[in-house]
Design a protein around this nucleic acid. Structure first.
Length: 423
RNA sequence: GCGGCUGUGGCGAAGUGGUGAACGCACCAGAUUGUGGCUCUGGCAUUCGUGGGUUCGAUUCCCACCAGUCGCCCCA
């Protein structure tokens, strides 16, 4: 073994690519129906974008970014998530001014986070995500959630769990934040080191702490849902109403906070509910981020979106025993005996392919028997054999591999006659 | 960043401190000198992750490192 693949990355081999493409195709199709358009942003951005966009108290920024200095001395970061880059493009290309509003975008591509790999976690992974910018209608929250749910369902996943929460607007968050600080401050010494830091920076995330989850103050902690002002409460109710209307079951979890700083109002997560799935069961996460566009330097614009990982999608499909459709066999394998015949197949092969058939031949100078074996492995529907006899008589033998039937076609009209035979 | 487990041919997998490292699958060849899927026969690891140590001797014992894997933190 010489050089190996970098830690946390993976080669997706042809066999596996089949499933990837099925998911990608389904996602694009769904986006078309929902009227989300693809946007492609660079794989790296100025580090500053993520510091501002993702939030400098987050784990992503604090310990997971692939950051380096380029030759011009600029600090560059491989994108750890897709929302900040999309918002950057939205602001920079002034999409807030385009005729079609709200602006509904989707992206699909690799993201990078420097983490210790484990089941369902990679250093390079592929996210599919959508963003709807410029609307505060709760119906679009439901639309975003439903797109993700429908993608999973259409690929065959059954065991899904949707969890939603509302963090409320600025005013509600502020009131809740104060209540949290007052609640934890007197006894913060009993909490883990991280929580002590969180108290000042982002007390909301204390609720998310797994280490101190059993502490009595956790159970009595003020719930965000009790601090939503009337407007926020009404908004959340409307989102839930639409989800119900769409027959999408959900669970409300007031502790669902999400790791990124920019969220407000609706947050949600879709988890796999399959027995024996890895420790990481979150398939998709998202939420509303009404202040983010302004933070990045654009006009006050509402936004909501989600991101899901294709790797975890595939893991969930496998956990539920869903197999990709196996590829069809090839139409014709050209077997040849003797150099003259082998030379002749070069042209025939091209004719077949240009006529729309999938066709293959032997390139390892194998014997006829081995060529048939290869054809069988390719699940060839027909094998056309060309030898001295055929060449002499301007014929080519064509065998139907399923029935074993063999017929002869005119060599100089092979493709036309094969077209009829193949149907 | 921390912890558990693992590291033998293309893949799966047994094994022992001491001449030649089971077996299965896959692959290749032949039986069948121009025809696949079945069967039979034969072939296929100067070598047991890397480096060091213990020993007369190590794939097997010890240490370090590396890699994989699962979990913690956190996330997609």
């Amino acid at each position: 073994m010489s050089i190996s693949i970098p830690r946390g990355t993976q080669d997706i081999l042809p066999e596996e690519v089949e499933l990837w493409q099925q998911i990608e195709t389904k996602a694009r199709e769904l986006c078309r129906n929902y009227q989300y358009q693809e946007i492609r942003t660079p794989i790296f951005e100025h580090t500053e974008l993520f510091l501002r966009g993702v939030g400098d108290t987050t784990d992503i920024v604090q310990k997971e970014m692939y950051t380096f200095e380029d030759r011009g001395g600029r600090s560059i970061t491989l994108r750890p998530e897709g929302t900040a880059p999309v918002v950057r493009a939205f602001v920079e290309k002034k999409m807030f001014g385009q005729a079609q509003q709200p602006v509904k975008l989707y992206y699909m591509g690799p993201m990078f986070r420097y983490e210790r790999p484990q089941a369902g976690r990679f250093r390079q992974f592929v996210q599919f995500g959508i963003e709807a910018l410029g609307s505060t209608d709760p119906a679009i929250d439901a639309e975003v959630i439903s797109l993700a749910m429908n993608l999973y369902k259409e690929m065959g996943l059954k065991k899904l769990k949707l969890i939603i929460n509302s963090l409320g607007d600025q005013e509600s968050r502020k009131a809740h934040r104060e209540a949290l600080v007052n609640h934890f401050k007197p006894r913060i010494g009993e909490f883990c080191h991280d929580c002590q830091t969180r108290l000042e920076k982002n007390p909301l995330r204390i609720l998310d702490c797994k280490q101190d989850r059993d502490h009595e103050l956790m159970k009595t902690a003020p719930s965000i849902l009790d601090y939503l002002n009337d407007e926020s409460k009404a908004y959340f109710e409307k989102v839930k109403q639409y989800l119900t209307q769409l027959d999408i079951p959900f669970e409300v979890d007031a502790k669902l906070v999400r790791g990124l700083d920019y969220y407000n109002h609706t947050t949600f997560e879709i988890m796999s509910d399959v027995e024996g799935f890895g420790a990481i069961s979150t398939l998709c996460g998202g939420g509303r981020y009404n202040g983010l566009v302004e933070e990045i330097g654009g006009p006050n614009t509402a936004g909501i979106g989600f991101a899901l990982s294709i790797e975890r999608f595939i893991a969930a499909l496998k956990a539920e025993g869903i197999e990709p459709n196996v590829g069809e066999g090839i139409d014709c394998y050209l077997a040849a005996i003797g150099q003259e015949a082998k030379d002749y197949t070069v042209g025939l092969l091209q004719q077949l392919r240009l006529a729309g058939f999938s066709a293959e031949r032997d390139y390892l100078d194998r014997k006829i028997k081995a060529q048939f074996k290869a054809a069988d492995r390719l699940k060839a529907k027909y094998v056309a054999t060309l030898g001295e006899e055929e060449l002499k008589n301007n014929k080519i033998s064509v065998k139907n591999m399923a029935t074993g039937e063999q017929t002869e076609l005119a060599l100089d009209a092979f493709v036309e006659q094969f077209l009829k035979l193949h149907g």
